[in-house]
Each structure stands twice: as structure tokens, then as C-alpha cells.
Amino acid sequence: MEQPLSAPLNGIAIEFGYYPKPCDIATGRFSVQTLPDHENSVATVVGDPNAFKDWIYPGAQQQRDFMSGNVRSMPYNARVFGLPKTHVLTLHEGRSREELDFVVWCLSFFFGMRLTTTEAGFLDATPIKSGVLVDFALVRCTVADVIELALDYLDSEGGDPRAPKRVAAVIHALFLAQYPHSLPFEQFQYLYMALDACFKLVVVKEAQKPSVPHAGRVQWMCEKFDMPVPDWAKSDKATPSSLSVVRNDTVHEALFFDGPLGFSIYGGNQPAADPGNTTLQMQAMVCRLLVAVLGNPGISYVKTPVDTRQRHALELRG
């Protein structure tokens, strides 16, 4: 069930959350306000018994017996759940509900934690601390800069209504892949889908649509944005990328490194099978491609290599 929209005289607004920090800004295009019960909402979430190591889980599924009214905790967890709303976003200039949702998705990405406008917008688990789901930190830029970037993107993509939907889909897949209890093949599938959606976002902007097979898509994007090409994405006519080989086996044969799904880690079960941690690098690649798609592809962060666990500074207008 969604939160009802408010309708201020000068725009359209909706509550969103969960974001643990106060945030109050106002410009001619938008405003963000912290809800009055923010402090209590944060205390409730942080103190929840299902919160653990910067994540919160939904807990056991509850089922009510309609005849007796008794509530039973089921032997399995709920999956979809909600958290308190903490802020309200208002957009001016005749914006729509879909644009409100898109801006919140972009805030989610740049904050590195899932935010939602819906009553139950979380699946399986979600971070309760910012920065958990990305490898960058905003430097010399503000929440206002993020919202301006999102609105500028909406304005630039007015002729393609699927573009913002694809951006939201990439962010969601990136976040789903990082659920702490995902199996390796699940992480890989979500991240591969995110990379493929990034390719779609980029390739549809080309005047002459190139025919790029799966084996070369990440390399093609890296070369377009002058990014270092990771080893797992390198491809030529004689040798497809190792990423595409894993993708073909997983999608077409339900084999993940020669084992049934769930029976193997990335690279196989031999010691040090994947010393480069390819799935972690795939996460980093998705982050860089999203920044390139949403903003200026010349931003220095986009050019940084993905084969490191280093946290990078991100200047949106750099």
C-alpha cells in the first residue's frame, strides 16, 4: 500500500524513507524536509531486534487465524517489509508521481542505501546506514546536487520514458545482489542483469546502433567512457570474455562453474578460485556506469579501476 500523496499549492510531494540523517533543503525546483518524529523513528529502527551489523531484516512471517484471532510466528521469514518514513520530498514545475519515485531511486543510489516511497518497499533486508551499497562517498556536493542531477536527467530523457525505469531497475538489481545471504550465483545473476541494463541505457543513445554481443558489452562500455577494462570483461573474436562464459552456462544450462546452482562459489570451489573477487568488481563497475549515465562521464570516479576495495571520492560535477 502506497503513502497518499500530499498536494501542496506549489508542487507535488510524498513521504519517503528510511534515511537516518536530518535533511532540510529548499530550492526553486524542489524541497526536502525532515519529518517531526525523525528522532523517534531512527531510535526505533536502530533498536529493532532484527537489526544486525548495519542491516535490518523483516523477522518471522506473522499469520493471524481469522477464527480465533491468534497470531502465530511462522517457521520462515517474511520477505517484503516496511520501515518508517523519515522525510518528505516536494517537486515543483508540474512534476509527476513517477518523477518523485525516480528522484528517490537516485537518492538511494548516491546515499548507498535503499529508500522508498511505498508502504512496504524492502525485500529480505536493507541497510540502515548510508554508504553500505556503493564504493564511493560524495565529496564537495550535497543532497541538492543529487536531486538536481536526477531532475536534469529526467528533462534530458523526456523522449524515452523507459530510460528512468531502466535506471531504477539497475539500482534495484545492484542492491538486491548485496543481500548478505545471497548465494554466489544469485549475486552474479543480479549483477549481470544490472550490467546488461546499463548497456541498454548507453547503446540506445548511439546514432548508429552497434551490434555488440554479450561477450563484448562491458568492454564496449568501458572503451566508450575511457574506463579501464577489467580482465573478466576483455573479449575478442577468438576469446569471449570470461564473464560471458559464466553467463551463458548459468542462463542457458543452469550450471554455475560446472555445478548445479548453489553448489559452487564464483570461480569454482578450488582454493583461491577467484582471487580478484569478480562479483565485487561487477558491483563497482555498475556504480561507475550509473554515474556515467546519470551525470558527466568525464567525472574522475568513473575512470577509477574496479579491482580494489578502496572507497572513492565522488564529485558529481567534477
Rank of each mutant, 00 (worst) to 15 (best):
K234T: 09
S68T: 15
V103F: 03
D226A: 15
Q62W: 11
H92G: 09
A13V: 10
G259S: 15
D236F: 05
I299L: 07
A292H: 05
Y301W: 07
Q208P: 04
F110L: 08
A163Q: 04
L83C: 01
E148G: 13
S156H: 11
G59M: 09
L191G: 02
T90C: 00
T250N: 12
A168T: 13
L195M: 08
L191D: 01
M227L: 07
V32R: 01
A169Y: 15
N10C: 06
P213D: 12
L91C: 04
V286F: 12
P228K: 10
A207E: 12
T279F: 10
N70V: 14
V134K: 13
P22Q: 08
R114L: 10
P161L: 06
Y179A: 13
F66T: 14
D155I: 14
A163F: 06
A254N: 12
Q3L: 13
L294P: 02
F102E: 01
Q33A: 09
V80F: 13
G112W: 00
N10G: 12
E223M: 05
A60R: 14
L176S: 05
T239S: 08
I147R: 03
Q270D: 11
V134R: 10
D231H: 13
Y301M: 07
R217E: 09
N40Y: 05
F263G: 14
A292K: 00
F110D: 00
P84E: 01
Q62D: 03
P161D: 06
